[in-house]
Simulated assay, not measured.
Amino acid sequence: MAKYRLIALLISALPIAIASNIDPVHARDVSPCASIGHQGNVEKTAKDCVEPRGTKAALGEGQALGLPEGALKKLSVPEPITRVHRFAYRLLRPQNPSGETMILLHGSGGDETSLFKLASSVAPHATLFGVSGRVTQKGIKRWYARITATEFDQNDIRKEAQAFADFLKDRMAAEKLDLNRAVFIGYSNGANLIAAMALLDPNLIHRAVLLRAMPVLHAAPEVDLRRSRFLCVAGQKDKIYAPFAPALEELLRDRGANVDSLTIAAGHLLGKEDVQVVSEWLSAGSAVAARGRQQQ
């Protein structure tokens, strides 16, 4: 009985933890489209973006709630989920497109617009393609079902990765967008799916930014990722995800990927330093690509 009382106490404490542990500045930094309306060359359709309906939309995985370390891991009973049939998405084209597309995958509790502000800051001339996960678990939108904060349904990861890859290929072709020139940007739960997709379908993802990510596949396939480049950005104060970051980086490097890794003075939430490091990484990659085209 004591065990069940502890679980009930933890669950009832979640709203209090959410309200008391969010930095308002960082929450604004990751809110969808807070000032995107006329930023750069993004079309007026961006004004349709909405702010999060609650603080959870600015969060990634649950450790931002401030519970004692390891507490959420004890909630090992799978939570009920609902799943929609189609992926919701939002496509924003700039007035002067660069030819690149930013494919944006939100963290837990976000939606298809959650990374628009960050993406428009780091790549103002790119087409923004934000997609929302199909799974909702206890009212929180996710990319796949979770068991605990760091343990995930392995079958569901593979099922959703395949469904998203199929959707993405069809939608990119229909919109006449070049998947080979796309950059994937994922935050937390969305970044985890990107890494899993790269391992499950090695020809799909060539460049990706993984913000606050961890490895989620128990048996990662032995694939060739020599054509893929990743930027992994961990938060030094991120108590749950940061300890797993080196394992993900090693996993990708072992399969031949070019991996740049950074740990910044931050927690799980995103902020201005993330914008800076992602922007610099993308600029450096574009310069290398331009030199390569000139030499051909």
Rank of each mutant, 00 (worst) to 15 (best):
R5L: 15
L6D: 14
L10Y: 10
L14F: 06
S35N: 01
I36L: 08
G37P: 03
E43P: 04
E43V: 10
E43G: 14
C49A: 14
G54M: 01
L59P: 11
A64I: 00
P68Q: 12
A71D: 05
L75S: 01
L75D: 01
S76P: 06
F87T: 12
Y89V: 03
R90S: 09
P94W: 10
S108W: 02
S108T: 11
T113D: 14
T113R: 11
L115I: 11
L118E: 01
A123E: 04
A123D: 01
L128G: 04
F129E: 04
I140V: 13
I140G: 00
R146S: 09
D153Q: 07
I157V: 13
I157G: 08
A163D: 11
F164M: 15
F164G: 06
F167A: 05
A174T: 03
E175M: 00
E175Y: 00
G190T: 06
A191G: 07
N192V: 01
N192R: 09
N192S: 05
L193F: 09
A195W: 01
L199A: 09
D201A: 15
D201R: 15
L204H: 10
H206E: 09
A208C: 14
L210Y: 03
M214T: 05
V216W: 02
P221F: 13
R226C: 05
R229C: 12
C232A: 08
V233E: 07
V233K: 06
Q236A: 14
K237L: 14
K239N: 06
I240K: 02
Y241Q: 12
Y241P: 00
N258Q: 10
S261C: 14
A265Y: 15
V275R: 15
Q276M: 04
Q276D: 06
L282Y: 05
G285T: 12
A289N: 07
R291K: 10
R291H: 07
Q296W: 08
